[in-house]
Simulated assay, not measured.
Amino acid sequence: MYAHCVPHRNSELCKVFSLQSNLAEVFSSQKSPISCLDGIRTISTILIVMLHVWRFIILRSSHLNEYTALEFWYSPLSNLLEHGRNAVDTFFFLSSFLVMYNFQNKTLKGQHFSLWKFYLNRYFRLFPVLLIVFLFYITLGKFCGKGPMHDNLDVEHWRKNAWTQIVGIANFYCLSPRVSGLVHLWYVHCDTQLYLLTPIAFLVYLKFSKKISLVFICIVLLVSIASVFTGGFMITGNYGIYAVKYWIQFYSVPYFRGNSWIMGLLCAYFFIPMKTSPLKLNKNNEHNSDHKA
């Protein structure tokens, strides 16, 4: 209301809380061609937060009646919440899309691709913050919990395996259901591992041709789909998707998440040509359609 009544005194701080300014920004067409990714990221974040609130707070609440929980478990809303785990794949998709998008933009501008800069940029952008969180947890984490189920097994586990967080392979060391304090960091490591493998496609792109790199990415995608389908069918058929073995061998590892990552590469691969050379209606077809009309 203040922004509407006193437009000449608007500050950037007021605009942050202004519905009028924010809606104008949301529906503005004068944006980056990939600004729609922000909306996908927002929706995915909401679904993931709702899933964790439902599963780890509501279902585990001591005040929840078991019959009520069971009745809700089979409801359509519960089905929607449980499938919030699929929204995790959208983040892998977005990450790979942006990686390929930036790579192709730099290539079209004639900029040199440096493998070392590619890797170092990733490490120093994410891991210093991650290591600060990790060091806080293994030193002061034992003072941040309470209750009869609280113990220091999780802290001791990560103290012994601190090197896995530094190297970036901690998602392979969540070997116990009791090791859950830092289990959410699996995504950072899994995403980084896929990130480190992506330059293989870039090198094929640069050394050979764009079409050969496309064929290479498609072959890797088919192999990934086949391996995930075969292994996933064997694991879920014998143990179920809620088993610890499913989490260890599939959910948090890169070969399980490779499909969505590769799909992001493919979409960015085709997006750049469409942006630079948009599709146009053939003049002959346009003339024929007008004549028929």
Score class of each variant (00 low, 15 high):
176 S>Q: 12
83 H>C: 13
164 T>Y: 00
288 N>V: 08
83 H>T: 12
45 T>P: 04
240 G>V: 08
268 A>F: 01
154 D>H: 05
216 F>N: 06
110 G>K: 02
249 Q>W: 00
261 W>P: 05
151 D>E: 09
36 C>A: 10
38 D>Q: 12
3 A>Y: 05
30 Q>A: 14
112 H>M: 09
270 F>P: 08
34 I>V: 15
175 L>R: 11
230 T>F: 14
247 W>Y: 12
84 G>Q: 09
233 F>E: 12
233 F>K: 10
239 Y>H: 14
200 I>D: 01
151 D>K: 06
152 N>K: 08
33 P>F: 11
247 W>T: 07
178 R>V: 12
271 F>I: 06
71 E>Q: 11
131 L>H: 07
286 E>H: 00
282 N>P: 00
284 N>E: 10
20 Q>C: 06
156 E>D: 12
220 V>N: 01
187 Y>E: 04
138 I>G: 06
263 M>Q: 06
68 T>P: 01
164 T>A: 13
49 V>I: 15
6 V>P: 04
145 G>S: 12
104 Q>P: 01
139 T>H: 05
62 S>H: 08
65 N>S: 13
286 E>P: 00
76 P>M: 07
237 G>T: 01
8 H>A: 13
77 L>K: 03
8 H>M: 10
257 R>L: 01
247 W>F: 13
45 T>L: 15
109 K>T: 05
284 N>S: 11
130 L>R: 07
30 Q>D: 14
43 I>W: 13
21 S>P: 03
75 S>F: 05
123 Y>V: 14
128 P>F: 14
127 F>K: 03
196 L>K: 04
233 F>T: 15
232 G>E: 11
287 H>R: 10
227 S>K: 07
94 L>W: 02
268 A>M: 00
292 K>C: 05
261 W>L: 00
209 S>L: 06
157 H>A: 04
275 K>F: 08
125 R>S: 14
194 L>T: 00
118 F>C: 05
279 L>Q: 07
252 S>T: 06
156 E>S: 07
196 L>D: 02
88 V>L: 08
208 F>R: 09
198 T>N: 02
148 P>H: 02
